[in-house]
Write a protein that binds this DNA or RNA. Structure first.
Lengths: 199, 199
DNA sequence: GTCTATACCCTGATAGAC
DNA sequence: GTCTATCAGGGTATAGAC
């Protein structure tokens, strides 16, 4: 509560962008969702694109990558399977965070249409996670916990199913279907993957 | 050449839908790409949605699942790694087929917005491939070629990276960047996966 | 900061001449 | 089967009163 009009506009815009994409969500819809006229909206943002840019720059950094939480990777990676479980859980939990989930839906819609969103997806989102994972696998290999292989390849192999399952959960939720079957896929993925790579 | 106006409309529409989504591609753009007036377009299709439906029903079946090419699965699955390589290659080649690639881009844009497209993606596209793969893995397990595990889980683990790499290739191509690095990811995936599962 | 009023463009779609 | 002409509705954005 006690949100400023500006914040209300951003919330309404994110909601509509995530449902209909940037072009499909009109300034009219956004302002009516907030409860003001279109013209009043222009007191808070220069134009429609300004709303988009504010949302993107706010959410692209914060809501996409987790695990920036202190702890040195050297320590956590040595936990092996537990580390992977923590990573996957953080990944899965993102889809339960309302704003992250809406931004994810929006990214998926715009991925093929907007170069800027593509860059954010591939760099901020994907590369960041790959980097963490490949470092972790490298450490696990050094410790002799897992088979020796290309850490970056292993990171990709571990991350792709996580991404796919997250997308699937998002799709199911859109049709108000249960996501419990997908939730177990995360668990099964970790078990399967660990069994395959562990020495 | 020698395309009917109707075919020209469908081609132009697919091109524009794949770049801008359904809403973003106007009837005006489509008809001007064909070289006719908007009104003339209505002699060939009832309305805009009719164009979409024609495209979807034409491409959802044909361009999405390959491997319907005769040969019984029992035989090909016994080839083990070669089968996986063939499967992955067919999957990769889809992204070199112009129409399949455009339809894939369109699907990605509409996935979060259109229930019908979601169903096609999850059922026609994803489930079909999972079914083939899980049957193949089941046979390989019976033959003692690979570790024993849940065939459906294994199918998902094998397919998710393929999907992700295909998506990545599509994204790179949109920015006219080289996809050769992604092409090798397909190969590496097969090698890695086979090494992990082979007995 | 919000309102009304308005400008101007793009949208899907139809009627009727050729 | 294609054209011109036209329509109502919705799109972003601005000016000026309160």
């Amino acid at each position: 509560m006690d949100k400023t009009t500006k914040e209300k506009i951003l919330d309404a815009a994110l909601e509509l962008f995530s449902q209909r994409g940037y072009k499909g969500a009109s300034v009219r819809m956004i302002s009516s969702k907030v409860g003001i006229r279109e013209s009043a909206l222009y007191n808070h943002f220069k134009n429609k694109e300004d709303i988009l840019n504010t949302i993107v720059s706010t959410l692209s950094s914060s809501s996409l990558s987790f695990l920036s939480s202190g702890k040195p990777l050297e320590e956590s990676a040595k936990k092996g399977k537990s580390f992977l479980r923590e990573f996957a859980t953080s990944f899965k939990l993102l889809s339960y965070d309302e704003k992250s989930e809406k931004f994810f839906r929006f990214m998926m819609i715009e991925l093929m249409q907007n170069r800027n969103i593509r860059d954010i997806f591939l760099n901020d989102f994907h590369q960041t996670h790959l980097k963490i994972l490949s470092q972790a696998f490298f450490i696990m290999m050094q410790e002799g916990m897992i088979r020796s292989s290309d850490p970056m390849l292993m990171a990709r192999e571990f991350l792709s199913p996580l991404f796919f399952y997250r997308m699937q959960a998002t799709l199911l939720r859109l049709d108000r279907e249960s996501t419990s079957s997908v939730a177990t896929l995360f668990e099964k993925h970790i078990d399967f993957f660990w069994e395959m790579i562990s020495e």
